[in-house]
Write a protein that binds this DNA or RNA. Structure first.
Lengths: 153, 153
DNA sequence: GGGGGCACGCAATAATCTTGCGTCCGAAGG
DNA sequence: CCTTCGGACGCAAGATTATTGCGTGCCCCC
């Protein structure tokens, strides 16, 4: 799939505010509402546009504890990695999980309500996991920016 | 603001898929469409619900390079921290930025198109920055999960 | 026992989305 | 150089969805 200037502008806008009407989007980029809609449908069917979600304000949600956890596994076999990934993905509070290169194998962002729940999850995901060699937790003092924005050019 | 069972279910659903109709949401939680809408408006005006966004599929967007960067500043004065934060937030490719506790001061997630752009940004944000003491980059091999989901209970 | 506030459902209205149709433009081929 | 084809567009009608006014019921507090 190839993007023109209008596609870039649309995708940019949609990633920032997907609640605008098709007509408003159209006025921004110089298209009719129906043309905008057809483009959006194209993004969808091409798999570029995955979904629409509501974003909560972490600061306004009671007692949210955000933490970034770095993890190294004991053994590098892909079976062990899969098992660990499965364990992570089964937990909704695992907000983000990345398989990374470098000194650590995984970066995990945990979003929990209250420190007690955080500890409980850390226990389950990292202490009790059979193949976690080492992990370190960095608690988020201030979420300067959160989001899923991806550039398209 | 205090949440009941229905609020939790609604906020959960909206964070996963905000494109459902008010009627569909209402059927899920046992409310009419208008009652659902009024609740959503309440979340908005309480500041709990920040915005609606479209989420792109990183795997389907050409040449996306995701990287997690850990940063420590030279000096701890709040002026230096603010300056660094400003510099981060001015860059759209800074997808996420967290001020954290522990061995590092900041965790930054960079989303760029192509390695060249990544290097350029790393240069600007970390090498050229006046008060960055040390930083390390972990490239994302596989984004197992991305998102902004926050639990509400 | 009697307000008062708040959330609800229903129904009418308003806004937005969706789709059929005719047109235009550019690329490919005669 | 002309013709044809495919793709994207705008417009407008129709369908769906969101919004809002109104009346009712519930619960808390007086």
């Amino acid at each position: 799939m190839t993007f023109d200037e209008i596609d870039h502008r649309l995708l940019d806008t949609l990633q920032r505010d997907a609640s605008r009407t098709l007509q408003a989007l159209g006025e921004d980029v110089g298209l009719s509402a129906s043309a905008v809609q057809r483009r959006i449908n194209r993004y969808r069917s091409a798999g570029v546009l995955a979904r629409h979600v509501a974003v909560l304000e972490a600061r306004r949600t009671a007692d949210i504890v955000l933490a970034v956890v770095l993890v190294t596994l004991e053994r590098e076999s892909s079976g062990h990695h899969d098992a660990f990934a499965q364990r992570l993905l089964a937990v909704p509070e695992v907000q983000q999980a990345y398989d990374v290169s470098g000194d650590w194998d995984y970066v995990v962002v945990l979003a929990t309500i209250g420190m007690a729940r955080h500890s409980e999850l850390a226990q389950h995901l990292f202490k009790d996991a059979p193949n976690v060699k080492r992990y370190t937790t960095m608690f988020v003092l201030d979420p300067l920016r959160t989001g899923t924005y991806l550039p398209t050019r």
